[in-house]
C-alpha cells in the first residue's frame, strides 16, 4: 500500500482528507449526538448536494465556473441551510425535529431539479452520492485543511459553552451563556464539516462517520472528554481501513468506511454485553 501511495498523488490526497475527516466528523458528531440532532448530518449533506447541483447547472452557461470547485457552492448552501434550520427550530419550538425533514425535502427537491437541468445524472453524481478516492483533488486538500483549522479553533474556544448547552440548554441560558449565538455557530461548523466529508464518504453516507463512532464511544467512555477520544479512535480506524479496502476492492469508499464503523460498533456492543453476563455470574 505504501509503495502505491508514493506513486499516485490522488491516493495521498484521499488519505490526507480521510484522516482529517476521521478526526473532525466524530468530534462534531459527539455534540450532534448528545444534542439529539443525529438527523441533522443527513439534512446538511443533502443541501450540500443541492449546492453542487446548482453549481453544475450554472457552469453550463457561465463557463468560468467550470474551473471553480463545486464544493464551494455546496458549502455555501450547507451553511445557509444550517442557519435556516436553526431559525426553524426556534419557529417550531415545540416541534424542533420538524426543521430536519423540511430542509431535507428542500435539499433533495431542488437538487434533483438542478441535476436534471444540468444533465448531471452520470458518473459524477455517483461519486457525490457514495464518495470516491480518485475524485479527491489538491483543491479538496486545501479547502478541507482550512475548514479543519477553523473548526478545531472554534471547538477549542467554545468547548465549555457547547458542553453546557448540550447537557442543559435552559440552565446554560440562566448562566448568561449566549445560547443563540453559540447554537448558530455550531450549525455553521456542522455544515462545513459535513460538506467537507462528502468527497470521501458521499452524501448518503456522511452521517456514518459522525454518528456510528460516537454511538460506540458512548458505550465505553467514562467522561465527556473520553467520549471524544474513543470517537476519534473509532473514526480513524474506520477511515483508514475503509480507504485501503475500497482501493483494493475497487468499491466506493463511503460504503467501506460505514461497514468498518458498523463492525466497531457491533464489537463494542457485544463486548459490553459479554462483560455484563460475566459480572452477573
Amino acid at each position: 500500500m505504501l509503495e502505491v501511495m508514493w506513486k499516485y498523488d490522488f491516493l495521498q490526497y484521499a488519505f490526507f482528507v480521510g484522516i482529517v475527516i476521521g478526526f473532525l466528523a466524530p468530534v462534531l458528531g459527539v455534540f450532534i449526538v448528545v444534542r439529539r440532532q443525529a438527523m441533522i448530518a443527513d439534512a446538511l449533506s443533502h443541501i450540500t448536494l443541492t449546492g453542487i447541483a446548482f453549481h453544475l447547472y450554472l457552469a453550463q452557461s457561465a463557463t468560468f465556473l467550470q474551473t471553480v470547485h463545486p464544493l464551494y457552492m455546496g458549502m455555501g448552501f450547507a451553511v445557509a441551510g444550517s442557519i435556516i434550520m436553526e431559525r426553524l427550530r426556534n419557529v417550531y419550538s415545540a416541534y424542533k425535529e420538524l426543521a430536519v425533514p423540511i430542509i431535507l425535502s428542500i435539499g433533495i427537491g431542488l437538487g434533483v431539479v438542478f441535476l436534471s437541468l444540468a444533465d448531471g445524472f452520470n458518473n459524477d453524481l455517483f461519486q457525490y452520492l457514495f464518495g470516491s478516492i480518485i475524485a479527491v483533488s489538491q483543491g479538496d486538500v486545501w479547502l478541507i485543511s482550512v475548514v479543519a483549522l477553523v473548526v478545531v479553533l472554534l471547538l477549542f474556544f467554545f468547548y465549555k459553552e457547547l458542553f453546557f448547552m448540550s447537557f442543559d440548554e435552559e440552565q446554560a441560558k440562566i448562566s448568561s451563556i449566549p445560547v443563540r449565538s453559540v447554537n448558530l455557530l455550531f450549525s455553521v461548523m456542522a455544515a462545513l464539516v459535513i460538506a467537507s466529508s462528502m468527497r470521501i464518504l458521499g452524501i448518503l453516507l456522511v452521517s456514518s462517520l459522525s454518528i456510528l463512532p460516537v454511538a460506540a464511544a458512548m458505550q465505553v467512555a467514562k467522561s465527556f472528554k473520553q467520549t471524544f477520544l474513543y470517537a476519534v479512535l473509532f473514526g480513524e480506524i474506520s477511515v483508514i481501513a475503509g480507504l485501503i479496502t475500497a482501493f483494493y476492492l475497487d468499491v466506493a469508499p463511503g460504503g467501506m468506511i460505514a461497514i468498518f464503523a458498523l463492525i466497531l460498533l457491533l464489537l463494542v456492543l457485544s463486548g459490553k454485553k459479554y462483560d455484563k453476563i460475566r459480572r452477573l455470574r
Partner: peptide
Amino acid sequence: PATVYEVVSMGLYG
C-alpha cells in the same frame, strides 16, 4: 456521558 466533576464545572462556565 459526563462525570460528576464535569457536571459541576458547568456551574462556573457563565
